[in-house]
């Protein structure tokens, strides 16, 4: 494990300044991502700026009915927050489906947005990986790609975005607030994560000296049902092979509003806008769900070992829509 300098920030401004002065700096909050990857020599920060003591731990509704979440709110606290449980149950479910109790206790909201792929070739410095070392190639393409993306990949990278929380956020809609040396700016969550394209190492719309300070959720759908269906190899403490997060509002037996996002199958948290279109105003029944699932995976490009993810993701979608509908009928929220 390489050495690094350490700064403990006492204000967001100072944290950003400390980072701005560095060639290769990194923020640390929970540490679950950074220290894992530093030990693997995948991340090589020369300075680590500790932001864990900064006052970014509030969860509160702001004026227009949108929930604002401080970047340092832990995954555990967010998942169990009464407002999240009541108004954004999908977010709560998704978080609790991810990682382990201990990691959720440590991991921050901002850190989760910065989560990096679990691609084994990314995590092995002896392998070729365009994300880790631009231009070195992609060993996953012809290698073991059972866990890799069927959506949003490029010839340069097919690494899956591993977050569960971000799947819920993609469905809900959110704004990411960043603070840099020149002040703050907001980025729409849907644009925050980038497709790999030719630059898989540029994973998010954030500069090295910007800090995520908060996340503001779109107003909740109401009344709604929600379901997060995560399909994986073991029953817990496991990344998704395919996950679907769905929110449904009903108008009688018809779907009013629908939101759908996928995890485990795409290079970024994957909002299924076309599928949502198909769902709107249609009967809340299996045939509709299956049409939406078809549409959501229409562009899938499977590789040697991950073709199963296409039907699996469709199943996750159909089940999530079914369960969200049931949830809505049971009068949730």
């Amino acid at each position: 494990m390489r050495t690094f300098a350490y700064a403990r920030a006492d204000s967001v401004e100072r944290a950003v300044d400390a980072q701005h002065a560095q060639q290769a700096g990194a923020f640390v909050a929970g540490g679950t991502l950074l220290l894992d990857l530093v030990k693997l020599d995948v991340m090589r920060p020369q300075q680590v700026t500790d932001i864990s003591a900064l006052p970014m731990k509030e969860v509160a509704f702001v004026d227009d009915d949108r929930l604002r979440i401080g970047a340092l709110v832990t995954n555990t606290d967010l998942a169990h927050h009464p407002d999240v449980r009541q108004h954004y149950p999908l977010l709560s479910q998704a978080i609790l489906n991810g990682a382990s109790t201990q990691i959720r206790n440590m991991a921050s909201t901002g850190g989760n947005l910065m989560q990096r792929t679990r691609c084994p070739y990314f995590r092995d410095v002896a392998a070729a990986c365009n994300k880790r070392e631009p231009g070195s190639g992609c060993d996953a393409m012809q290698g073991i790609n059972r866990m890799h993306a069927v959506l949003g990949g490029s010839e340069h990278c097919i690494a899956v975005h591993p977050s569960d929380m971000c799947v819920a956020l993609a469905a809900i809609g959110a704004t990411v607030t960043l603070q840099g040396p020149d002040g703050t700016r907001d980025v729409d969550f849907g644009n925050f994560h980038r497709l790999p394209g030719e630059t898989p190492h540029q994973e998010q719309d954030i500069t090295d000296d910007e800090l995520i300070v908060a996340l503001t959720l779109a107003p909740p759908l109401a009344p709604q049902g929600a379901a997060y269906v995560k399909l994986r190899d073991r029953a817990s403490y496991e990344f998704a092979l395919a996950a679907a997060g769905a929110m449904i509002s009903l108008d009688g037996d018809m779907i009013g509003e629908a939101r759908l996002a996928l995890g485990g199958v795409a290079t970024k948290p994957w909002r299924c806008a076309e599928a949502e279109e198909i769902l709107r105003g249609q009967p809340a029944e299996t045939a509709t769900f299956e049409r939406a699932a078809e549409a959501a995976l229409a562009d899938a490009q499977p590789l040697e070992h991950n073709a199963f993810k296409v039907p699996l993701a469709r199943q996750a979608i159909v089940r999530a829509l079914r369960d969200a509908t049931r949830d809505a009928k049971e009068g949730h929220a």
């Binding site: 679990r118 070739y121 012809q142 290698g143 073991i144 073991r234 817990s236 403490y237 496991e238």
Partner: peptide, 21 residues
């Protein structure tokens, strides 16, 4: 890895043993 025999899941996450659940 079928190409070069490198072991690609030499960790307690990618090599999956049963958990409590």
């Amino acid at each position: 890895d079928p190409r070069d025999a490198r072991l690609m899941n030499s960790n307690a996450s990618d090599y999956r043993v049963a958990v409590h659940a």
